[in-house]
Design a protein around this nucleic acid. Structure first.
Lengths: 180, 180
DNA sequence: GGTTTCATGTAACATGTTACATGATTCT
DNA sequence: AGAATCATGTAACATGTTACATGAAACC
């Protein structure tokens, strides 16, 4: 069975939220949804061509913008997107390099494990701080987002926060155990 | 800069815990460490050849086993592994198809979101149950694992449990909000 | 004797990432 | 004018997944 192309629907979905260029899509991934998705140019630009060829997106007739090529979803594109949304999501294979390293490090002195935990905790803390401020921004309601969309965005952010908090909890708990 | 081959060290690390065949490695990934890592045959067998060629692993002279080719890490292999363990782990790009779908589904009726959450919660619950029983097994100490190794295994399992619990918490919380 | 599990392997395909090329526009 | 950022694009490379082929050994 052929794999469903996930980048395809990611890009289609992002354009469905707000029409934009390849560059805009990259920006969106690197900021707003960096905690749940990533794309790179090597995927984005060829995919935009192919989505256009398939008739799922179309160029927005631009007058103002310079070279910028803006796309938006077509009716067909919206329909394909909806049908993907309703498909069940198969659970994806998990790969956590940190956890793997940690598991393997039982031959090294315990202090080494503790150092790994400390560094990792700090990485997580920094990310978590970022999520907290995003949540603040969202809640102060500066952005021009519909209430309905905000609800979903907030849920996704909340997920990132809970997940980060849980990771920090684990780091602390495990460090404690290792110190004893 | 060339990417560091993660499968390489995963396989090397697994063989360092316990010598075994390609088949054994796959088993180990699918059971013990399924919550943190996955490998498939397409990676494992060619990588075993290449690790052997590099001198990082060697075949265990077998007498008993049939066709089974068992490998173990060499001294050089152990050293390379240790040096990888001490390298800092760069944070990996995140891709959660479920979250992406959820974020995109603001055009669908709210009930749809609630259904997604319910299904996802159930998926997580089943996994979590599996982790709980693994933890029980570990704690009853049936397996022939050194105390030191057990400590690391337990930490990794504990991580999976906390992570699952946090996910379920989020599902419940979000469902509540969506019901209002 | 048949079914399941063990066991190794690979070809074809699908996806993901980096590094670079190119040049316009905006900011200072 | 020079630097930073915007913007599009691709070639080369790296990684990941599936489906199938093959057959031995264990189990029932």
């Amino acid at each position: 069975m052929a794999l469903r192309n996930r980048s395809k629907f990611a890009i289609l979905g992002i354009l469905n939220i707000a029409p934009g260029s390849g560059y805009d899509i990259k920006k969106y991934c690197d900021t707003v949804i960096s905690n749940i998705w990533s794309e790179n140019y090597g995927h984005i630009y060829p995919m935009l061509k192919s989505l256009e060829k398939e008739g799922l997106i179309e160029q927005v007739s631009q007058e103002n913008a310079g070279r910028k090529i803006q796309y938006r979803t077509t009716q067909t594109g919206k329909e394909e997107l909806m049908s993907w949304l309703c498909e069940e999501t198969l659970s994806q294979p998990i790969r956590s390099e940190f956890m793997l390293k940690f598991l393997f490090s039982n031959n090294l002195p315990k202090e080494n494990g503790i150092r790994m935990l400390t560094e990792y905790r700090e990485q997580q803390r920094v990310k978590l701080d970022g999520y907290y401020s995003m949540m603040n921004e969202l809640e102060s309601g500066i952005k021009e987002i519909s209430e309905e969309r905000e609800m979903y965005l907030r849920a996704v952010l909340r997920r990132a926060i809970l997940s980060g908090e849980s990771m920090i909890e684990w780091c602390d708990e495990t460090t404690e155990i290792f110190r004893k």
